[in-house]
Design a protein around this nucleic acid. Structure first.
Lengths: 225, 225, 225, 225
DNA sequence: AATGAATGAGCGTTCATTCAT
DNA sequence: TATGAATGAACGCTCATTCAT
């Protein structure tokens, strides 16, 4: 396959959160972190198919045997990696809304701004499509990804509840879901190295307008369950 | 990896459009079609990683040697497959707007309805995340996918132009892009076997409201390039 | 493990009978024969544990990939090998009694002579203990081995029936079984390179005496089922 | 490989006799015993090939590191195991003939009875074929096994000497050897879970008859050395 | 057009072993 | 005494590919 040039080759790829092993030494935890980092790097730069045990071991200058010592099989490693990377997103999200803006409208706009900014990062642009593809065939990824999204929608639902206390819970949920999905969709079009990456600024304005309007104007249909 | 149960196991997976080989016999074309169909079936049911030459050959009860006769190497096959599947989507799209409804608002709504209906199909839900993931690392897929989306946005841009002749072309383009991306984003949340598949109906109402409003109300910022 | 010196290192190890593959070329059959021969050689010279796919491939100057082409997995190869080797023993046995000696006593003695002669061969001494060990954990080997022994006992039972028409079938069967088992047991003590290999001649006399006597003198107990 | 069902799954597998380590603590001896027991359990249940260091460690809920602390390498462990298990058989045998029956005929019969009873145990049926197979390729096992058999034949030779003082030593030895080998051979046919396990009772009668007759009637050939 | 045969590289995994803690 | 960490080699197997038939 023809490879897409990597613009920021030497990306640091940080942000991995995973629990230490019971009874394990600090050295071992560091090694496991190095392994997961290398795996993430390959996943981002070359895709899931290229993320083999051997390549990961080679990436972090480690023998294959040691890699399987820390992660007895590939599934363990992949799950640990995806869990760690998703957990780090959850932590990031949890930190976002500790600074309360004034009006709910401002908070909605800020939320979208932060999400769309994240989407433009190489890491997110590359990682999430892989997660979406994997979630189609792997229940663990499926559940972990949608767990993340559920948490990510919570502040959105709060904002909508403030702006539209008249709406029933399902309707609020639908709107939050739509807003969240809508932004995720932009990953493929205006994410890192995507055709409309440069339009992200103006797309943000379009999105903000659409989201504000739909929250304000949405009228639940009679039979909306 | 833990497999997600396939609800409509025996899916037919049709819709593959690809050119006959120059100087090739009809039999050969049929065989190539069978191969691509088998490949697509694996891609949809088990993901890109499982789509090996051997498994494709096995899927269509064919010996490996014959498969490599028709597609000398894997890249040829993958490109032919993705090209064929994307082409079939383009043809489907081209057929959509031959029946012109009355108002542009109705046409916008119909457009969204058709797209969101397609998204709920197993084929589309499974296929597109794979394409998005591949497009991050493969220029051919990248270009082919965005070519498809460009064509898909064309009728959308026409509708927007009718509704908002006052807007400049970049703004219209941004709005069309947003609407398209927005709906694509719903694939992951309300597509086939997704957590909110059952909410697609009401999500469609939310989306329609948001899209109509943004087309009607969008005001280009002063510095929008 | 300390290795026992191989006295007749360059043993030919012939006698493998297995069916040609349907639609396969003669070349392929030859290759499969070469593979099985190499496997048998290793099994005999170094034991079951040493009989790995890689070592077999190396033994017959073949690439591992080609070996797995002909035998998709180890179990297939092992079964094919044991089946072939056991089949060849069955054929050998079937040929033994086509020359009818005069008295049943002479035939019994000839039978024992032939079996004990075979036991002294390197192939049989080495192979059968492996089969016995394997048959403890592998149903295929278990059934195949006891199928062979059942066929091997048939002429024995005929002889006994001739000598002792008064005996009931179960008693005849027990005697045949005892005689057969008795000789097999000598493998470990007086087989190839065994401590009493040189005593085989005189052991044969002891065995012949014991077998003749038991056939002649055995009196079925009252409650013998 | 297809596994043979284990009828008496939770076998205790006792009977391991091995010397304590010089300067070792009692705790260490217990651990080593636990290790050898686990090894023996695997050997019996799954065969020699499955008896790896890792599996042994896992079997006795121990970390690999600790196992290699007690047995620095595999050969040490295997030798210790086989030595211990053979030693325990030797001790068992030594205890048998402390109760002297009256006539040598009765003693011969009792001897056979005890041996054939032991053969029917899962442990013996499973273990000895492994020993026979190993003894073909490993001098230590070879010598240790035949040492055991030599001791086992001693009481047999005494009985024969009593019954046939006229016979020369080689002839007596041959007869004892034949009787011993004969019974060992029954392991494969009428041992634990073997096709004729249920016939062991009547086979014992056949064997007793044959053995008594051969001891009584055997006439050494003129050239018997 | 299709199958059989063979290669060479790579896959995930298990192995026995060594050494630091 | 026991566990954690790491190595290097080998395991059975699958891969894409090439070529003869």
């Amino acid at each position: 396959m023809t490879e897409i040039a990597h613009r920021y080759q030497g990306t640091a790829v940080p942000d991995l959160t995973f629990p230490p092993r019971e009874g394990g030494y600090p050295k071992g935890h560091e090694t496991r972190e190095e392994i997961l980092r290398a795996a993430l790097r390959i996943l981002i730069e070359e895709g899931y198919r290229a993320m083999s045990m051997r390549r990961i071991a080679a990436q972090c200058g480690m023998k294959l045997g040691n890699l399987t010592y820390h992660f007895p099989n590939r599934e363990d490693l992949v799950q640990a990696l995806l869990d760690a990377v998703i957990t780090s997103y959850e932590i990031e999200f949890a930190n976002i809304f500790h600074d309360p803006s004034t009006t709910p409208e401002q908070r909605l706009e800020l939320y979208c701004e932060l999400v769309l900014e994240d989407i433009r990062s190489k890491k997110t642009t590359r990682l999430f499509p892989e997660l979406w593809a994997l979630s189609n065939h792997d229940t663990f990824v499926f559940e972990r990804v949608h767990d993340l999204y559920r948490r990510a929608r919570a502040p959105l639902e709060d904002v909508i509840a403030e702006m539209r206390p008249d709406l029933a819970e399902p309707a609020r949920h639908d709107i939050a879901l739509f807003i969240s999905a809508s932004m995720e969709g932009l990953t493929v079009f205006a994410g890192y190295a995507k055709p409309f990456e440069s339009r992200m600024q103006s797309l943000e304005a379009v999105a903000a307008r659409a989201f504000l309007d739909v929250v304000r104007n949405f009228v639940a249909p009679a039979d909306s369950a």
